[in-house]
Amino acid sequence: MKILVLISNVPDTTTKVRFTGDNTSFDDAGVQWIINPWDELALTRAMELKEAGGVDKITVANVGEKTTEPTLRKALAVGADDAIRVDVPARDAYFVARQLAEVAKDYDLILAGIEASDYNGNAVGGMLAEMLDFNSVSAVSGISIDGDKFTVNREIDGGSQLLSITGPLVAIVQKGIAKEPRIPAMRGIMMARKKPLNVVAAVDAHEKTSYVNYELPAPKAACKMVDEENAKELITLLHEEAKVL
C-alpha cells in the first residue's frame, strides 16, 4: 500500500496577519512557514499506519515554489519516504487539486488536511477525489487499514460514524486523527536531505477563483467589566443590553 499525504505550506499559526498593496496581498515579510497543522497530523497518522505494517511507502506532495522545500524536507525528517513538489506557485484550490491530480493517481490512500490554516478552503481533498474518481470521506478523525478496505471514523453533523470503505480513498482528516504532530528526531533530520525530493513541472490549468482583496476585522470595543462579587449583573447585561439571553 502506498500513502500520499498532501502538504500545504502555511504561515505559523501565531503570525500576525497583515496585508500589503492596498490590502490585495498577504504580507509575508518575516513570516515563519510551517506544515499546515492538519497535514502534520495526517502525516503523523500515516507514520503510525506504516509502523503498524502493511504500508510500503509514504510520499508527501506540495504545490509551490522552491521556497516551500524546507517544509517538505521537514515532512521527510518526520518520516515520509519521498516527496513531490509541483513547481508552480499555488493559486486557488482548484488549480492546486489539478496539479496534484497528475501526481496522485497511483496511491491507495491519500490523506489531506480538512483545511489549510491560511485560506481555509476546505476544498483540495474533495476536489482531488473527484478529479481522480476516488472515494472520499471527510471530517475523518480515525483511520486504519483493514485488508483491502479502510475503517474510518468520521464526524457527521450530530454525531460520529464508523465506516468501512474501499480504496483508492481520499481521507480528509481533522483533529483526532493523531494525538500530536511528531517532532522529527535528529536521525530523521540528517536523513531528510538524502531522501528523494522530486520536482515535477506544472500542468496547464486555470484557477476558478481569485482573491480581490482582504479586510481585517473591525477593532473590538473595550471589554465591559463586571465585579466578581456581583456576577449576577453579568446576566442582566447579557439580557438587557446585549440581548443575547
Binding site: 499559526t13 485560506y119 481555509n120 481569485s210 482573491y211 480581490v212 482582504y214 479586510e215 476585522p217
Partner: peptide, 18 residues
C-alpha cells in the same frame, strides 16, 4: 463573495471566475 481567511483573523473578497 466574502469569506473568512487565516482562521478568522481576516476576511477575503473572493471572485469566482466560472
Amino acid at each position: 463573495i466574502k469569506k473568512k481567511v487565516f482562521t478568522g483573523k481576516a476576511f477575503a473578497n473572493v471572485q469566482i471566475n466560472a
